[in-house]
Nucleic acid binder design. Structure first.
Lengths: 235, 235
DNA sequence: GCAAGCTAATTGTCTAACAATTTCGGGGGA
DNA sequence: TCCCCCGAAATTGTTAGACAATTAGCTTGC
């Protein structure tokens, strides 16, 4: 690319550039993108790079190409919104409040159910990993890098403990998005309730095999995160 | 391609071919695929087509390419299992019983909650679409093409009524997979309980705005479909 | 035994040309 | 006036070959 921005193969960075442009509404649904040759000129790359980028976007449901008709942006309802990369692209622009609410609503549906399953199915090894993650979180706090990765490992362990690979896939997508919401949240200097106690409580519920307590605690956890995030967004 | 199989652009059919080969375990995780040049020779296409196909697979998290190292199949946990195409590819081979169970478990988590939301939020227009779909289903039965598309429209309307675009995306992925399970189901000549009455019941619950009835009916609906599908799979 | 550097293999990128497809416009007919 | 059919041009689809960039794995030296 003429404008050497980020590392990695050109088709990856270009796919991100075009993808972000699409999800942020720069190219609304139904729009026909510039032709491959024109895009190649605009970005200073060859047509091959453009085409490989467009293939990636079409694999995510963002666009569809037809001879003579060009490459058209598909309806938003057809996008694979749960694709982790796509989710990340959504958060490159400022995500709408409605989108963030959808995200937390989805979490509120999936994660309590997952916690319930995990409480029943978890292995000893998974339990020990959860316990370790909670320890690190408690020591480091959630504003540190280590603390946040521990948080992610904690939730990943819970999902893995469900033994449901679709649930794992779904939540790893969600986790990608949640990373961004927490990022936004801690940009805003507000006082939030400390989520560590609830994490401890959730861990103990799972350790005890108490499914309904695991569900309830997870619900409170997400509700709190949702409130905090919303406060940060409107601020 | 030398072996002209299906219509459409070569990179699409090739992506499917390679994708199916990967998800069915022909190339296990960690395996390095043949080089691009070799693949091009094997399939009788140019390197560009191979590359565009591989880009599509990498966009779905199936593979990752690095110079000199080749293109490697990623860990299954990193695949975007909720990608509709990927889901369809999983069902081209015989899906494992565990996978089908994961699918119904996920449905059991998501769809009752969605029905609950729909019962509260649905608009009049959405309600009328649901009603019409149920009518068609009742008249055509679920073994006909029209009846099955009506079934899909019914469930799509419910999801849309939740007003949550992430839920819509998730369930359209699930719907892609469910299409395959019903396809399998009706290949096997067994007697199944008629699902039409439950659909009617669900419609009425949503029409009445009765969230908890909508949840309960959806749960029974999915439980029944799960039992039927499992019976068909082991047969 | 280990580390640094070299080499070769592989993906990444570019160019240029032609093929296949299909939208769009125009012309002819009812 | 409307509709159907047909042609042509524009766009993506595909191919070929070449070179660049990267880096895994070996080789050499310490």
């Amino acid at each position: 690319m003429a404008n050497g921005e980020r590392r990695g193969p050109a088709h990856v960075t270009l796919a991100r550039t075009l993808g972000v442009a699409i999800v942020t509404g720069e190219f609304p649904s139904g729009t026909v993108l510039p032709g491959e040759l024109e895009l190649a000129g605009q970005f200073g790359v060859s047509r091959s790079v453009i085409r490989e980028s467009l293939r990636m976007l079409s694999a995510k449901g963002l666009v569809e190409s037809r001879p003579k008709a060009g490459t058209r942006v598909r309806e938003r309802a057809q996008w694979n919104l749960l694709d982790p990369e796509l989710l990340a692209w959504m958060f490159e622009g400022a995500p709408s409040l409605g989108f963030v609410r959808s995200l937390f609503q989805l979490r509120m549906i999936v994660e309590p159910a997952a916690a319930e399953l995990a409480a029943v199915q978890r292995s000893a090894a998974q339990l020990s990993r959860m316990g370790h993650a909670v320890e690190v979180m408690a020591q480091q706090g959630l504003r540190t890098q280590d603390g946040q990765t521990a948080d992610q490992r904690f939730h990943a362990a819970i999902l893995e403990a469900t033994g449901n690979e679709l649930l794992v896939s779904l939540s790893s997508s969600i986790a990608a998005a949640v990373r961004w919401t927490t990022f936004f949240k801690y940009r805003v200097p507000l006082q939030y309730r400390d989520p560590i106690p609830l994490h401890r409580e959730l861990f103990e519920a799972i350790a005890n095999g108490d499914a309904s307590a695991a569900r309830g605690t997870t619900e409170r956890l997400i509700a709190q995160a949702g409130l905090d995030t919303e406060r940060a967004l409107v601020a």
